[in-house]
Amino acid sequence: MIKEVENPVLETHNLTVVYDRKPAIWNIDFTLPAGSIVGIMGPNGSGKSTLLKSIMGVVEPNSGYARLFNKPLDAVRKRVSYVPQRQSVDWDFPASVLDVVTMGRYPHLGLFRKLRSEDKEIVADSLEKVGMLAFANRQISQLSGGQQQRVFLARALAQQADLYLMDEPLVGVDAASEHAIIDLLKQMQASGKTIVVVHHDLYTASEYFDWLVLMNTRLVASAPLEEVFQEEMLRDAYGGQLTSMSKIAALLREKSFPMRHK
């Protein structure tokens, strides 16, 4: 089930990345509607992180390309914010929470321009929104996993982008923080932003997302949530592993999504 939209905020065309002769993503071709919260889901190693990285030019695709706001990435960098997987950086780096969130302003400042008071306000405001203002001067090595995640979100907010690509922002976050983060994403959506979130938990996916992209190296589905959240689709993405399949069936019953029978 792959649904195309008019005037997509993000589109990929035959995007393919191959590591060591083994494809991490293969021929990914989708369009995403503006103003939605999009979930990208798939099992471990299905290429979700690689997809975001190739869209952002962090890894060079072997073939295919992505367009954002109907333009090539380089023309719209400042309108896009990328939040890498939290585990991808060294949290023992000598920096404070404030330092890291300030990095979100670097693209606007370049190498030389001094931090203006306006930038400082944006940084403080971003910290406030994720509830980390009180921790501004804390060493990043002294943060819990959930706090680290909030710092990454604050840095993304400080970028003041229109499209956010977030790699697993809810992993290792307790229930209260998860709700706070989702509320924040919904607020951002309400102010017209588009948010793409790599997510693992099938149980909560149906509450959080408007649109779902399922992938397993190849694209399995990209469509509004109700149309994707069906057993055969999830089975395609998750490869019919017994445990996850029985979970999915139970989940679908629980959420009373219509199950299609062949």
Partner: peptide, 17 residues
């Protein structure tokens, strides 16, 4: 700035161009 960003979070640095 770029050395700092590239040392702490190269993926983010590449993402902002």
């Amino acid at each position: 700035r770029y050395l700092k960003l590239g040392s702490f979070d190269p993926a983010f640095a590449a993402g902002v161009g």
